[in-house]
Amino acid sequence: MGVEFLQFLLSGLTVGATYALVGLGFWIIHTACGVINFAQGEFVMLGGMATAAFLGLGMPLPVAIMLALAVAVVAGLLLERLAVEPTRNGSVVTLIIITIGASIFFRGLVQVVLDKDFHPLPAFSGEEPILIGGAAVMPQSLWVVGATAAVVLGLWLFFEHSLHGKAVRAAAANLLAARLCGIRVRFVLLLSFGMSALLGAIAGVLIAPISATYYEVGIMLGLKGFCAAMLGGLRSGWGPVVGGLVLGVVEAMGAGYLASAYKDAVAFVIILLVLMFMPRGLLGRGARSERV
């Protein structure tokens, strides 16, 4: 215990917060239409890479970030309208392949339009570490955790208290009934893709000053976010949040105390164990038995 532990805990929470954001992106789309969007990680990449590109054009950081988020959202909307919408009734596997195709496409696009280099973004408010209980924390970490908390709060308000949010949940519960109630399902789908693209891009912008962004950064982050969502379960929005934070902390502890070389493996080992021995996820009922 002590300072070292605290240090690992804090860095774990920082990374875990980004996993939570990515996982929430998976959750929103899955809730709205039952699709797992394997291009989720590419929204993360788009957020970071587009910010870097706009900065390169000489724009101030806040403007660059806003434009980058807009780029990612447009990408999400186009993905829904052009690729997912036409195959709404396809099998799970078909949709998986389509979103994987989209992720390859986005990577290819960024690689062509921008480049294949690593781009570290400047930290939002300096690089002077802050001491918390003896552990050094980068101000950027506070940005990550704070922004994630704000996003989670915003999402909670949206889904619990706004009409649109309720529409998404209604569509998730019963598509036909939602349609009969006058909810425009197509709009709900579009909304969910736009929102999860936004979440992914926010994660990408937040984490880029800590670990540089490049065109393939989304692959691993996307998979970890998927892990987070599956770990917590997709039944409520709290699943990915809890899953992400748990994953981030365990990963940091594992890397710190056990073997740092296997840091990336930790998430997958955990998810395998959980799925094998608690197939319903940490927060309850994941794999339901089929009803006949």
């Binding site: 195709g101 390859i104 496409f105 986005f106 990577r107 290819g108 062509v112």
Partner: peptide
Amino acid sequence: QDYEHLVFGLILMLTMI
């Protein structure tokens, strides 16, 4: 060359659609 991934991803999506 550089367009390889872009075209590949596109073909994948179009075929599945």
